[in-house]
Amino acid sequence: MEMKYNWDWSVLLCRLPEDDPTGTSETTFGGTTATAGGAAQTFDTGADCAQPYLDWIVSGLGWTVVVACCAWVITISLGSVIGVSRTVNQPMVRAIATTYVEIFRNIPLLVQMFIWFFVVPELLPEDAGRWVKRELPLPEYWTAIVCLGMYHASRTAEQVRAGIESIPLGQTHAGLATGLTRVQVYRYILLPVSYRIIIPPLTSDFMGIFKNSSVALTIGVMELTAQSRQIAEYTFNIFEAFTVATVLYMMVTLIVVTVMRVVEAKVRIPGTIAMGGG
């Protein structure tokens, strides 16, 4: 299919004149070794160069990573607590954990994002609500982190539960039989074994958080996808803008998957294989 489109990577590499008084740019980016040279630093080349687009991308990537990592901390801690709760003997604890999982799993992330951002501050006690709305710096970022973390905790909880349930009952019995308490059995036997088993599904959960952090753009978080759309709208160089974002997402995915493979191999229990990733 023939298409009418003028590729122009230099748009992404331009600098504001104030930022780059020497008039040269040393930047090479993503394999396209383009010197931004004469193409870019002056306003008279048009709107193309009006903004530091490369900085936008870098900042967007930064926020994506920060939001995803902070949310992951919530996800892994809360998800572990809830996953463990679903395997204990007390029916009440199990019921609460199950309710959490069902609610957070069955409402779309975007709806949850809106509820956290627009509805929850209204429902808080007056003082807390005012603080969240008026004084909390960067409220959309905090909201996104909490929302993403709690949403994905429901999924991680299911992985943790599946990991624990995949361990034969005899292991629990063996632990209890030597006098360990239930808590100690979880601490020293069930959790160490199940975390190792569920590394692949936990990795894809993390990738899920990382990709879903893009949903935060709906409440104003300027992460990678938001920045690339903004560049697309400013410059009409949509292919360049979205290609950069896509390549960055793929690179981060590749890095995370590689790192997790190494981790998995390092902690693998001799003579066992891990549960398949989902």
């Binding site: 009418k4 996808t225 292919f239 979205f242």
Partner: peptide, 19 residues
């Protein structure tokens, strides 16, 4: 699988008309 759905939606929303 390594690209967020929102970005994919943007891709097709903005790019398909060109193609």
């Amino acid at each position: 699988r390594s690209t967020p759905l929102i970005l994919v939606i943007f891709w097709f929303y903005f790019a398909v008309p060109y193609v």
